[in-house]
Design a protein around this nucleic acid. Sequence first.
DNA 1: CATTGTTTTTGACATTTGTCAAAAAGTGAA
DNA 2: TTCACTTTTTGACAAATGTCAAAAACAATG
Lengths: 187, 187
Amino acid sequence: MEQLLSNISTYYQISKAAEEKLVDALERKIIAKNELLLTEGQVCRHLYFLEKGALRGYYNVDGKEITHWFGFENDFVTSFFSFTTGKPSVENIQLLEGSILWCISKNKLTNLFNEYHEIERLVRIAYEKYYIRLEERFVNAHFKTAKELYENLVQETPHIIEKVSLGYIASYLGISQETLSRIRNQL
Amino acid sequence: MEQLLSNISTYYQISKAAEEKLVDALERKIIAKNELLLTEGQVCRHLYFLEKGALRGYYNVDGKEITHWFGFENDFVTSFFSFTTGKPSVENIQLLEGSILWCISKNKLTNLFNEYHEIERLVRIAYEKYYIRLEERFVNAHFKTAKELYENLVQETPHIIEKVSLGYIASYLGISQETLSRIRNQL
DNA sequence: CATTGTTTTTGACATTTGTCAAAAAGTGAA
DNA sequence: TTCACTTTTTGACAAATGTCAAAAACAATG
């Protein structure tokens, strides 16, 4: 819990009062490896904070799983599309290892927004960070070669390489597992 | 102006009072074709609303221009990274045709956030829409072939094809102009 | 430590897409 | 209508990456 609070304070410092209400709304969860936090077709009604562990978001296309993001320690995690629109999710979220999460329902969060302007501000600022993160990935994928993408990953987010199997990383980068294996062996 | 107000009300309905303050903070601009709204290296201190016209965001890589997004009527436009972080922009924004824009400075917007919770909420909700938009593009780019990307564009955003030259569209899709030309002629 | 299942690597080959250069088509201004 | 300029198309070829199948390496479990 300390960890969560200290993390959000890097986005925006909220008051003690708001913090207490936020803490009240949070629920702790421990989930085992390979469990699904969300299955496609379900509406995602929760926002999660990953205190410890790792997970991935993936969707199924033509019988293949495409992993398009990972979550690690101190990440906020949800199926963003489903959570914000209230429509069924097209993606699945699966635990890559046993993990500790904090969880808040959309209802409770909405109430907190109404009660505390500062909590909505916190989230607005968090959105900015996550938008920039996605934009960066998008721009990279736009013009970099497979090799450059992998080198970039090694540089910028080595924890991904340490924790995640090759097949998922390849999918995340948008290349085949075989190509990634070859790239790695020629570096 | 009507158009802007009616557009933001599709995100979130703000009060008359907030609306008036917002209107006061806005400035109208008319900018000619090919002009740059923002040059890389500058800090982007404004958020724009495109009432009429078209523009593109692009960056330079190895002497080549990479167009990574377009703005059209009723779009909010800025260099998101630079605007939110206050750091120099890595991208340029250029008018594709003579356009009418509304413009608000980051300072004024920040003041409006402090004064009106509802304006910050409006922006929070707008962020959600724009995040989803980016995510959709990202996911498509992730596993679709060049041909599918183009077909998708024809389906989903035909206005892009009508208004924008082939070279820019190719760059936007992340493929070469020649490949796009061939795809188009074989459909 | 033997067995089973999973992940990674390798090889051969096909396919997609990119690059360079030139021709063709289209556009706008004088 | 012509000229200059920009955009699009075409052809020939090269490079990057994907696919399929099998072998090898690794990991987990009884």
